[in-house]
Amino acid sequence: MKRWKVEVEVFLREDLLDPQGRAIGEALQQHGIPAEDTRMGKVIRFFVDRMDTSLEARIREMAEGFLSNPVIERWEVRMEEVESR
């Protein structure tokens, strides 16, 4: 049995200061990693047992209007067919 893994990745827009990303970046630098422009985003992952164009459209709608706030964030969606556990 296969099902679909959906991951919606959300990041604060590049022009907005991300205090968490900055703090993480500074910590990485203190530990020998020359990290630049560190940003912290989030991933919302879920599974669906089917995928079709109308469901995909609905997922994109929810990514734009609920999982992210377009005033401050950018999002990307990844969909992949995987084996069910």
């Binding site: 200061l17 991300d18 205090p19 968490q20 900055r22 703090a23 706030n69 005033v71």
Partner: peptide, 17 residues
């Protein structure tokens, strides 16, 4: 209200963190 777009703009983490 900003999330609902009943008011313009958005409120995000303070710059100080």
């Amino acid at each position: 209200l900003t999330e609902a777009h009943l008011l313009p703009g958005a409120l995000i983490q303070n710059t100080s963190g």
